[in-house]
Simulated assay, not measured.
Amino acid sequence: VFIRPHCPWQNGKVERLNRTLQTEWAYRQVFTSNDQRAEALAPWLENYNTRRRHSALGGLPPISRLLPT
Rank of each mutant, 00 (worst) to 15 (best):
1 V>M: 14
2 F>L: 14
3 I>K: 15
5 P>L: 07
5 P>W: 04
5 P>C: 10
6 H>R: 12
7 C>Q: 14
7 C>S: 15
7 C>N: 13
8 P>K: 07
10 Q>N: 12
10 Q>S: 09
10 Q>E: 15
10 Q>V: 04
12 G>F: 02
12 G>R: 13
13 K>H: 13
13 K>F: 08
13 K>A: 14
14 V>M: 12
14 V>H: 11
15 E>M: 08
16 R>G: 07
18 N>R: 06
19 R>S: 15
20 T>H: 05
20 T>M: 05
21 L>E: 01
21 L>G: 00
22 Q>Y: 04
22 Q>E: 11
24 E>M: 04
25 W>P: 00
27 Y>E: 12
29 Q>T: 05
30 V>M: 10
30 V>D: 09
34 N>K: 11
36 Q>I: 01
38 A>P: 00
38 A>W: 00
39 E>A: 08
41 L>R: 06
41 L>Y: 05
42 A>K: 12
43 P>G: 08
43 P>R: 09
46 E>T: 12
46 E>G: 09
46 E>V: 05
47 N>T: 08
48 Y>L: 06
48 Y>N: 02
50 T>N: 10
51 R>T: 07
52 R>G: 01
53 R>P: 02
54 H>W: 06
56 A>T: 08
57 L>T: 11
57 L>H: 13
58 G>T: 05
59 G>S: 06
60 L>C: 11
60 L>D: 02
61 P>I: 01
62 P>H: 08
63 I>L: 09
64 S>F: 00
65 R>W: 02
65 R>Y: 02
67 L>E: 08
69 T>P: 02
69 T>M: 03
